[in-house]
Design a binder for these strands. Structure first.
Lengths: 122, 122
DNA sequence: ACAGAAATAAGAACTATTCCTAAAATAAAA
DNA sequence: TTTTATTTTAGGAATAGTTCTTATTTCTGT
């Protein structure tokens, strides 16, 4: 546990449920540890994604997003503004009855797409 | 319908169920229309994704993939080799009982992750 | 045939991400 | 505590994927 990793975690905490990009995490982390480098943020996030401490969310037309909440929940992306909202586990049900022969299932990511309330209002 | 768009569609057909990247589509299209440019392939694919003629699949750690099969099916990605397999609609069930207030749901993409048979064998 | 509109090729530009290297921090050994 | 080895970092260069720009070409309607 280095000071840099701590700054990254703190940044993720501050970002709350906004599903920040690596760049946003970098900006937030820099406030506490001005010397931190973007590459370091990427490395830590990538490593944390590998160990399951965070979730990395690939979105079409944009940078990857990160989520501290590794609980079993889903995401819904507004295709207009790009904001990502959470859908609680209890509100979504996924069942897969068949996977390609011999494959070992690791995890699901459900990415729904919507036009969010804010964007519909415009 | 331009010759370029036709070449892109033909390339997608040839790619079959391999979920090609834009680059692969470009390479395939070039065989029939050597003058085609990568930018043109991107533009056509992007437009087709907007109109729903193809599906654009964002994958973590890699280029976007495209799928001619716009029927309601799901994808499963091997985290080792990056291959994407299909899961037929009948084999997966997704239910969402609640979306963020005021949001209009557009579509789902379920991206499961696995280690595929080929990679397990190694 | 001609004017205007839409689509293209080519490559420059841009963004997100990874890689490289030397320096710094940390841990282990003496 | 000094020395050595290991890990991690900052900084920036390099790369990959994608978009944008511009001049040119192709279509469309008259």
């Amino acid at each position: 546990m280095t000071a840099q990793k701590m700054a990254v975690i703190r940044a993720l905490e501050e970002a709350g449920r906004t599903h920040p990009t690596a760049d946003t995490v970098y900006a937030l982390a820099k406030r506490h540890l001005p010397s931190i480098a973007l590459g370091t943020v990427y490395r830590n996030l990538t490593k944390m994604a590998e160990t399951g401490e965070v979730i990395k969310i690939a979105v079409p037309d944009g940078a990857d997003r990160f989520d501290m909440d590794v609980s079993d929940h889903m995401h819904i992306l507004c295709v207009k503004c790009g904001k990502i909202y959470d859908i609680e586990e209890k509100d979504v049900k996924v069942e897969i009855s068949s996977v390609p022969a011999g494959a070992e299932l690791i995890r699901f990511d459900v990415m729904a797409k919507c036009i969010c309330a804010d964007c519909k209002a415009v």
